[in-house]
C-alpha cells in the first residue's frame, strides 16, 4: 500500500529533524576534538624544545625571563595548594549541607534552600576573586600579619566557598537516590536518625559523594579568575599558603594577556600547561564517572 501524502510529509520532516540534530551534536563533538588536537600538537612542539624530564622535575619556572626555566613544579604546587585548601573548605561544609538538606530538613525548608544553593553556584567567579582580595585577605592579615597581599590561602578559601554548592548539590542528589526502603529497614531495626545517616545513607551514597568531591576538586584545579586576582603571579616553589603563588591557570591568563609573540617557545608553554591541565581534569572526571557507575551497579 502506498503511504498517504500526509504520512509521506511527516516522514520527510522526521528525516530532516533527525539530520539536523545529528549535525548539532557532531559539531560540538568535533569542536572538542579539534581543541584537544591543537592542545596536543602544540604541546608536542614545546616538548621538542624542552625535555619532559626538565618540565616535570625542575623547580624553577621563568619562561619569559632570561635565563629561561621550564619547571612546572611551582605552578603544580600552586595549583595543588589551591585545590587542597578549597577541598578542606568545600568538603565539610558541602557535605554537611547535603546531609542536612537530604536527611534533616523539612520538605518546605529544602524547597527554599536548594534553589538558593544553586543560585550561589551561578555567581561569577570574578566576584569571588575580588571578595578574596578585598575581604578575605585583609581578614587573614588581621590574624597573620606576615601574609602577603596576594596569597594562596585567601584564594583557596574563595575557591572553596565557590565550590560548596557543587559539593552540596551533587552529594545531596546521591543521598536522595538512596532508596527510602533502606532507611525504613534501618529504622525498623531500632536505629536513631543519626545511625541511619551515618551507617546507612552515607555508606550507600558514598560513591556518589566521592565523585562529587572529585568533580569539585577538578573544578578547583581549573578555576582561573579567583586565582588570577587573589593568589598572585609569582611562580615560587613553596608550600606556604601565606605566600604569593601562581597556578597553572593563573599563568595562562598572565601569558595570554602579555605581548608574547606567536610561535615562540614562551607562547608554546601555554599549550603545554593547558595540555597538562586538561589531562588532570579529564582523568579526575573519568574517575568520578567510573565511581558513579560503580554505585549504580551496587544499588541495582
Amino acid at each position: 500500500m502506498e503511504p498517504s501524502k500526509t504520512r509521506k510529509r511527516a516522514l520527510h520532516i522526521e528525516n530532516i529533524a533527525k539530520r539536523t540534530v545529528f549535525l548539532f551534536s557532531s559539531i560540538s563533538v568535533l569542536t572538542t576534538a579539534i581543541v584537544v588536537y591543537i592542545l596536543f600538537s602544540e604541546s608536542f612542539i614545546f616538548f621538542k624544545e624542552v625535555s619532559i624530564v626538565e618540565f616535570f622535575t625542575s623547580t624553577k619556572w621563568s619562561p619569559t625571563l632570561r635565563p629561561q626555566n621550564f619547571g612546572v613544579l611551582p605552578l603544580l604546587t600552586g595549583t595543588l595548594m589551591i585545590a587542597i585548601g578549597a577541598s578542606l573548605i568545600a568538603i565539610p561544609f558541602g557535605l554537611g549541607s547535603a546531609i542536612y538538606l537530604s536527611e534533616y530538613a523539612p520538605k518546605k525548608v529544602r524547597k527554599i534552600l536548594k534553589p538558593i544553593l544553586e543560585i550561589l553556584a551561578g555567581i561569577p567567579s570574578i566576584v569571588y576573586g575580588f571578595f578574596a582580595l578585598t575581604v578575605i585577605t585583609p581578614l587573614i592579615r588581621v590574624f597573620l600579619p606576615q601574609t602577603q597581599i596576594f596569597n594562596a590561602l585567601s584564594a583557596s578559601i574563595a575557591v572553596g566557598i565557590m565550590i560548596i554548592p557543587m559539593v552540596a548539590s551533587l552529594s545531596e542528589d546521591a543521598m536522595m537516590a538512596v532508596p527510602d526502603s533502606l532507611r525504613k529497614g534501618a529504622y525498623a531495626l531500632g536505629s536513631t536518625q543519626l545511625d541511619v545517616v551515618l551507617k546507612v545513607v552515607l555508606p550507600a551514597a558514598i560513591s556518589g559523594i566521592g565523585s562529587a568531591f572529585i568533580l569539585a576538586i577538578s573544578r578547583a584545579i581549573g578555576e582561573t579568575m579567583i586565582v588570577a586576582i587573589a593568589a598572585g603571579q609569582s611562580p615560587t616553589f613553596t608550600l606556604n599558603p601565606l605566600n604569593s603563588i601562581q597556578t597553572m591557570t593563573g599563568f595562562m591568563v598572565n601569558i595570554s594577556l602579555g605581548d608574547i609573540q606567536h610561535g615562540t617557545i614562551e607562547y608554546q608553554t601555554l599549550f603545554a600547561i593547558g595540555g597538562l591541565l586538561f589531562f588532570m581534569t579529564l582523568s579526575l572526571n573519568i574517575l568520578a564517572r567510573w565511581i558513579v557507575k560503580k554505585q549504580k551497579e551496587k544499588l541495582g
Binding site: G185, A188, G190, T192, A204, K298
Partner: peptide, 20 residues
C-alpha cells in the same frame, strides 16, 4: 520508639537488605 522497634521487628514487602 527505638526501644520499641528493638522488641518489635519488621519485615517489609520488598526485601530491603542494607548495602553491606
Amino acid at each position: 520508639v527505638v526501644e520499641l522497634r528493638m522488641k518489635v521487628g519488621m519485615v517489609f514487602q520488598k526485601p530491603n537488605p542494607l548495602p553491606k
